[in-house]
Amino acid sequence: MTVRILLVEDDEDLQEIYLSMLDGNGWQIAQAYDGHEALEQLEQAAADLIVLDIILDEMMGDELYMRLRQDERFAKIPVVVVSALPEQRCQHILQLDPTTAFLRKPFRRQQLLEAIGEGLGRR
């Protein structure tokens, strides 16, 4: 079964860059530009992993993260948090689940692939 990865990022350029980074792994990539869109995407098709930006329009990434944790359908989905914010400003969500990975922008393709690989490995 094809692995499905949901990219939640409000910057279109970065969405394009993530796509390029993940290209060639045979994964199915879904894109959402804010929290609401992400939830809609998940309702339609579950994801095996979520790459989550924090500062978003409409619904912020941290709010989305909380909602996912409270929804048993999505609570177990591994998350890789990507943000320009320093790690400590994301602690309020990272401390909820030590397995949640954090990558501070900018990061390299290799870092993203490793974080995703680890997350997928824990499924």
């Binding site: 350029d13 970065l14 860059i17 922008k105 900018p106 390299r108």
Partner: peptide, 8 residues
């Protein structure tokens, strides 16, 4: 974004 773009 500049850095990530260029590295990519």
């Amino acid at each position: 974004k500049v850095q990530m773009s260029l590295e990519l």
